[in-house]
Design a protein around this nucleic acid. Structure first.
Length: 268
DNA sequence: ATGGTGGGACACCCA
């Protein structure tokens, strides 16, 4: 079973590279973030033509929005409105694999703006509140209730470890790598006993970054990237993961997203 | 210290 996550930064604008990616890498389950459209505007025909049977969409006009599609049959479980602000940032889908129920949580965690002070920046305060609610949700076991395995993935908008960014020192006060965020994200991970696949010794890719700013003159030469996109699994599933990859080359495709696909393969 | 480039919707928000 191959699963991929990709912040596509407008699915309508980039449907052609989504199709190329699917044809070349054949994910069984594909999770997109920042689709930036409502459900009715989602390019459903193109996605179905790629062989996806299940398509779950949590859309919103202009901003955010996540969608999960699969070649295997699935059903939408929930679209949870964390912090109850009406944002489309989460979708949970259930799949039956090998007689077990797998729940896939597709997340787009708030970016949090530029100012890393929650008293001065409501967006940053919202990001911290969102993480805190995720932690409680994981502690309560809500992520897996009624299922056998859980995967939490998506654009979590935080690079939690020192080598998840091009310069730990220079980014300590930059939103996405501040201590309050990295500690907050690691607390969510600990609360759900999730395994961060990129950090498993046997799976660790050479390059960890999943995002490079559009503002760099030459993203590849400067390589000022960050690992913002993650695939976490429940412990039982992590032992069945035999391949993990970050498709860095996608950042160099024509009219790219600023994020690249992250792919995990399981022997289940 | 600053400004750099991309989205969407509609004059400016967000990343």
């Amino acid at each position: 079973m191959r699963i991929a996550t990709w912040n596509i930064n407008s699915v309508r604008l980039r449907i052609d590279i989504v199709a190329d990616f699917v044809q070349r890498y054949q994910p069984d389950i594909l999770c997109l973030q920042e689709i930036k459209c409502i459900e009715d505007a989602f390019p459903l025909k193109r996605i179905r033509a790629l062989g996806f049977d299940y398509v779950g969409i949590h859309g919103q006009k202009g901003y955010h929005g996540v969608a999960t599609m699969a070649r295997i049959s699935g059903e939408t479980h929930t679209r949870h409105d964390f912090c109850e602000v009406g944002d489309a940032r989460h979708l949970a889908s259930d799949f039956n694999i090998g007689g077990k129920r797998l729940r896939v949580h597709n997340f787009y965690v708030p970016a949090g703006g530029d100012e890393p002070n929650p008293d001065l920046n409501a967006k940053f305060a919202h990001k911290l509140a969102y993480l805190d609610e995720m932690r409680g949700w994981a502690v309560d076991g809500q992520h897996i209730a009624g299922a056998d395995h859980a995967i939490v993935l998506g654009d979590l908008n935080i690079a939690p470890h020192a080598d998840d960014v091009w310069s730990h020192k220079q980014l300590l006060n930059v939103v996405s790598h501040t201590p309050v965020e990295t500690e907050g994200l690691l607390a969510v991970q600990a609360a759900g006993n999730f395994i961060d696949l990129a950090r498993e010794d046997a799976l660790r890719p050479d390059s960890l970054y999943t995002w490079w700013s559009y503002r760099a003159k030459d993203w590849e030469a400067s390589n000022r990237g960050r690992r913002l996109d993650h695939i976490w699994t429940s412990a039982d599933l992590a032992t069945r993961c035999n391949r993990f990859s970050i498709l860095s080359e996608a950042r160099g495709w024509d009219r790219p997203s600023d994020h690249v696909p992250v792919i995990a393969e399981f022997d289940i």
